[in-house]
Every structure is written in structure tokens, then in C-alpha cells.
Amino acid sequence: MQQATHRDTHRIVMLAFPDAQILDVTGPLEIFSRTARWTEEHVEAGWTPYSVEIVAERAGSVRMSSGLEIMASRSCFDVDRADTLLVAGGVGHRQVAANAAILSWLKGAAARSDRVGSICTGAFILAAAGLLDGRRATTHWAYCQELSRVANCSVSADTLYVRDGNIYTSAGVTAGMDMALALVEEDMGRAIALRVAQELVMYLFRPGGQSQFSRQLEAQKREGPFGELQLWMIEHLGQPLSLDALAEKAGISSRHFTRRFTAEFGMAPVAYLTHLRIERARSLLETSRQSAKAIARETGFGNEQNLRRAFRKALGVTPEDYRARFGSGSAE
């Protein structure tokens, strides 16, 4: 999508519904409305690059899952298209995903809109309308396995947001704001997106591939030998950690270890270990001044070449580019 000019007013339409998560609705819309206000005040008076609107099955008050109510300006059936059409998530998503009339409207409106996106479990509504067929997508980490079962799409289970063509999906709640900020950067450029993020006291541009949750917290919640193994792996990432060593630590024969580990975690041990190492390396690049060589040794990649290869494959950037964008200090 081309960046906006002073002649553009980009229409953002958000579909809300009873028992939606209120931050799924208001969080992204605040990003766009704050961008519009900032632009009018600091760039060009009279230029309103974004307009925002909430719609629902029926116009009027819509009760959110928190008990608070928001106002839908009109029925979604009165909306033919939008520049960006967004769908909220929340505990009421199942009812919407089973509503044939809304799904039919959504499919038609999406075909006429420039961009379509979902926040959190709104991905299930897009999937029910067939909009995720053959695409990559994400949702809140607690619902990723379910989305994989019911949708004809490839689910990225540990990312903040995913873009596939003109379809955008985000993880839970505040990740919708990260996705909205990335859309502002697409439309308005990085400088304006940066100023909006500063006004909202946000960390700017958490990358879409950033983890939705802490592996260490996950390990602390998991019971049994695999929870202990997770913590042990996190604490020993700099070691070789062969399959035999992992199996021995878990108290399981090497013959059955890979099968049981994969069933427990949804990925093979080597792939999971790589995830842990990348997560740790990202943290060090963001917060420390260690060199890439030292980080590669500490995280078990061994050398800079292996670290760079893993980063390019997982995140699409080099460790140096990642640090330049997200790091808090220079390397030693």
C-alpha cells in the first residue's frame, strides 16, 4: 500500500460484537485516531489521514466482556467497504463465527477493502468467512492449536502479528496495537509512527515475530519432568544439549524422547531448542552490549555465522539489524 498523501482520509472500520474484548476494539482505533490528531496538529491543519468507526450487527450500544458498553455508529450491513476493515476478538467470537449473515457480509466487504485484519480471536471470524484459507495467520497463544484445527491456514503460534498479502492477524489484546502501529508506519512513514508511539508511551514496533509470552514463565507453569527439563534447557543454552543429554535429563529413553517431547510441545526438541536460543539471543541484543560473537557462544549457536543464519530464518533480519532497531546500546 502506498504511503498516504495530504488528500487521503483512510477509513478504518472495526467490527465489534457482544462480549468482545474492549481493548481489541479501542486499542487499535486509538492508534489511528491519535495519528490523525497528531498529524493535524503538527503536520498539516485540516489533514485527517484516518477516520475510525465502530460497527456491529445492529447500531447502538454493544456490551463488552468487561461489562462496559461501546456505541456502534451503524449496522455492519450498511458498510460496503473500508480502507482497513478490522475484526475484534473476545469471548463472544464463537457466536459471530456461527452467524451466517455477518460472515456473508464480511466476505463481501473484505473483497472490496484494501486491508483486512483481526485482533486476537477475531482470527476465528476471518477463518469462518474463508478469508484465511491457504494463508499464514496468528491469534492469542492459548487459541493457536484450536485455530490450527478449525481453519485452513498455517498458524504462527508464537508471533505478535502476521501479514499475508492484504490480510493481517494479531495475537491477543495489546498485540493489536502493535499491528496497528505497523500499519501506520506503512501508511505514514516511520517518523510519524515513532511520534505517535512516543505520545502513547509505547515500545515502538515490536517486531511481528516477537514471542507472545515468556518461555521461562511457561516452564514454571508446566508440571512434571518436561517442566523441569524446560527450565534446565533455559539455564544451559550455552551447552551442546544433545538429544541423548535431554532424554537423560527428562528420565526418558532416547528411543521415545523425541516422540513424547513433540507431543508435549508441538515441535521437535531441536526446533524447540532453537526457539529458546533465538529468544535468549534477542533479549541479549536488546538489553546488553555483548558482541554477536559472545552472544553466539552464550546461547549455544557457537559462532556468529550460525547465529546470523538462525536469525535470518526465524526473523528475516540479521542480529546486527535487529540490535540497531531494538537495542538499547552499542555492542562492545
Rank of each mutant, 00 (worst) to 15 (best):
S254D: 09
L103G: 05
A331D: 13
L86C: 03
I31W: 07
F205C: 03
G172C: 05
A98D: 15
A110S: 11
M267N: 00
S283C: 07
E264D: 11
S66A: 04
L86N: 03
L285T: 10
L194D: 01
L68A: 08
T299A: 08
T274E: 11
L246N: 05
E30F: 07
I31Y: 00
R325Y: 06
F213M: 13
Q230C: 07
P207I: 02
T258R: 05
A109G: 13
S211A: 15
E320C: 04
F77R: 02
S113P: 12
G90A: 01
I31D: 01
L237Y: 02
A20V: 04
L194S: 08
L200D: 00
G130V: 07
D19E: 13
E248A: 15
P207D: 00
E279P: 02
I102G: 03
R163W: 08
F326W: 08
L15V: 11
K107Q: 13
F213R: 13
H256I: 07
S254I: 06
P49M: 03
K313P: 08
G302Y: 14
I125L: 12
Q239A: 08
L273F: 06
E332K: 15
K293T: 15
S104I: 11
T159F: 04
R163S: 12
R312Y: 15
Q305K: 13
R34C: 02
R58T: 12
A191Y: 09
P49T: 01
F213S: 00
R259L: 15
D24L: 09
A314G: 07
S211E: 12
G302C: 13
S288H: 10
D24W: 05
R325D: 14
A157M: 08
T287N: 11
S154I: 10
L284I: 01
E44I: 07
L106T: 00
P207E: 08
I54C: 08
A127I: 10
T121Y: 04
A4Y: 00
F17R: 08
P319W: 12
A98Q: 14
S288M: 09
M188V: 02
P28W: 14
N306A: 02
V317T: 15
T287K: 09
S148V: 13
S154M: 09
Q290C: 13
Q290M: 14
D321Q: 13
I70H: 03
F301H: 06
R260C: 11
Y143G: 06
W47S: 11
R135C: 10
C153W: 03
A197D: 00
G67Q: 10
S170Q: 09
E235S: 12
A101K: 04
A271K: 13
W38F: 03
I234L: 10
A182P: 00
R277K: 11
S253E: 03
L126A: 11
D187C: 01
A98R: 13
D164Y: 10
E41C: 14
A123I: 06
T287M: 12
Q212M: 06
T138Q: 05
L29K: 09
L229I: 03
L132Q: 07
G165H: 13
D80Y: 10
L246I: 06
M14R: 00
H236W: 04
A56P: 04
L217H: 06
S154G: 05
R63Q: 08
M202P: 01
L273M: 12
R112S: 15
A137M: 12
I192S: 00
Q239P: 03
E264K: 11
E332V: 14
G300K: 01
A191H: 03
F301V: 11
G117V: 04
G176D: 03
